[in-house]
Design a protein around this nucleic acid. Structure first.
Lengths: 357, 357
DNA sequence: TGTTAGCACTCTATTAATTTGAGTGCTAAC
DNA sequence: GTTAGCACTCAAATTAATAGAGTGCTAACA
């Protein structure tokens, strides 16, 4: 069967209406809602076709129609490609707004966590859905600077600064006292050897080599390397901020206790979200719009099979990306969500990249 | 009216039964449940009295009775005072178990956040309620060590170590380059002047004084002091870990959507929890058992008016306390919860205080 | 005087029966 | 190809009927 223009128009009308009301939509509604000037009977015929094609279905005989995942997919893809073509026009018209109120957050750029948490909150409030933001993935990030400090005679503080000025600390308990000269030597050693290295590069034989060449300090050196690796690692482990979890209760189709509990549970756990926010740079869709949409099963998180997830990527430092996502019911206002996400990623890009400084 | 022994026994039986079943309990049940050998009619009479006294009530005529907040209060107080007397006996019998498996967590004691988060998870899993743990309140904590490092020519990293080895970082953007000697001077200056000070002590005129005596570096010095204060402050802002929020769905009286949403919302916000976990050292009850119980309205968090909250205090460093709490329905298993809390605080005390090291 | 059996009464919860109305599919006419 | 009309279906809301748990009160009993 052919999905001609009229069918498509009807399908869109159905989905649009369902997005607003959340109720199955019947033929009579569409007959009036559209400018097609068709009777409900005609619409019914077309609907039967659309159902056969798998874009809509009835929850039960004698109910209106609801979009299937395939229906949503079609709708979303259409919208995105429209946005895409609209984008080119925008690109020309933009630039005038490019500098705006970033100074306030500028000052505390080192408090990335707070910025992201705040963003998540805002996003959730604006959209009435649940928002999710991942810390930029640092595992491709390079070590910029290491500082060893003696806090107590046997307590060594390792401060690690990564590219992008992410700072992490690790405390090491040592057996015997360390004298200042040794400390200085160690500091120089580590900064010479490790700067610019990633976690992966450090982990391999480098540790062994350095420990060897350090002679009697070998044990200490390898312990310090471990601490450094742990510090980088702890920055690596995807950190995720969520907000507005309770917004799901605004949508009856999600607020049944088992579903809600499952959803909130995965939001609390956070580990399960990493999959959602994995790095997808290189995907086709990504290349085009920077936006990805997962509908129902496509999320591969079982507790979200009744949800849709829209994600976008922001750039933290050259080549280091983080993700922003919105989780809501399948019948979410995709258009609004996409706009909101673009807004946020745009903001973050601007704040973090700061080509001027 | 007099609350004689028999009435008390009946009240306890009612509450105990209600804790288990969650259903209003009737006279016949009690007549069999207790060893009082009284007919249901007699029990009914006593129940009428207990109701008049305000310890129990009927959700509607012809339903069994449910404890009022006052009833719970009586029950909990009794239990706690029993525990208290039992404690003395324990004290004699204890000590043999005093050293147990703390080594594993010992190693990573600097990762307090992780330890506490893990504890919260465990506690929630064991009890099937929601758990809450606050970071030790550092605002009485003293500065132990400051380290200024130049990360880039105009980027100054301030690393602050507090008593208890809490480490915080703050990045400062400076106008002009700083040469190594100045840096060294600053390091010495700050460590001499500020060590052992609390946030409050630093904030006052000290900042002004130091800036003055620093001459042309005045502006820089005061900016650094700000950074240090911010670092301490960020450690001060109560940090709270929660776990098992979704456990509330296991209790029908809490899982109605509005209530659940409110509760989970406050758990997500966390700010509202600070009141619950405020420092109460010095309270009467606290002195006796280390345990506090808030029933219903007593929490003064509106979303928890159908809940009970039990909290306990643990000692992080001498004089620095944190709190552990359990949030559940009023009909929670208080005894189990109190035991679990004591267990956890005991563990934390042991881990953090480490009188041996 | 405290305890108990007995009974009428109340009120919720459950189940069943009934009604309503939205929406469909199909047929026949335009 | 479109539409009016009609019989049919089914969920949801409404009402009615029933069952059962539990009470309060009275009168008898030890």
């Amino acid at each position: 069967m052919e999905l001609d223009a009229r069918k498509k128009k009807i399908l869109q009308a159905i989905i649009k209406n369902y997005l607003e009301t959340g109720e199955p939509v019947g033929s009579r509604t569409i007959s009036k809602y559209t400018d097609l000037n068709l009777s409900s009977a005609t619409i019914r015929n077309e609907m039967a076709d659309l159902e056969e094609m798998g874009y809509i279905f009835q929850p039960h005989t004698s109910a209106g129609r609801i979009p299937t995942d395939a229906g949503y997919r079609l709708y979303v893809d259409d919208m995105l490609s429209e946005k895409q073509s609209a984008k080119e026009k925008e690109a020309r018209e933009a630039e005038e707004q490019s500098e705006s109120g970033s100074s306030e957050i500028d000052r505390r750029i080192d408090r990335i966590e707070e910025v992201l948490q705040e963003m998540a909150k805002m996003l959730a409030n604006n959209t009435n859905y649940t928002s999710v933001i991942s810390m930029p993935q640092a595992n491709k990030n390079r070590l910029k600077f290491v500082q060893l400090t003696l806090v107590e005679p046997t307590k060594l503080l390792t401060t690690v600064v990564l590219e992008g000025n992410i700072v992490k600390n690790e405390m090491i308990q040592v057996d015997k006292d360390i004298d200042p000269e040794t400390l200085l030597k160690l500091n120089i050693l580590f900064n010479n050897e490790l700067n610019g290295k990633t976690l992966r590069e450090i982990n391999f034989d480098m540790a062994a080599n350095m420990a060897d060449s350090a002679g009697e300090l070998g044990a200490l050196v390898s312990e310090i390397i471990n601490a450094i690796a742990a510090a980088i690692g702890s920055a690596d482990g995807i950190q995720i901020f969520t907000s507005g979890a309770t917004n799901i209760f605004k949508y009856p189709e999600l607020s049944d206790t088992t579903k809600a509990s499952g959803l909130i549970g995965t939001l609390e756990e956070k580990e399960l979200l990493t999959g959602l926010l994995a790095d997808t740079s290189g995907d086709d869709e990504e290349e085009n719009t920077g936006i990805q949409v997962y509908i129902g099963q496509e999320t591969s998180v079982s507790s979200m099979e009744d949800c849709a997830v829209v994600t976008a990527t922001y750039e933290f430092e050259k080549g280091v990306y983080g993700k922003v996502g919105i989780i809501g019911p399948k019948r979410m206002d995709y258009e609004k969500v996409v706009d909101a996400l673009k807004n946020v990623t745009g903001n973050l890009d601007k704040q973090f990249r700061k080509p001027d400084k």
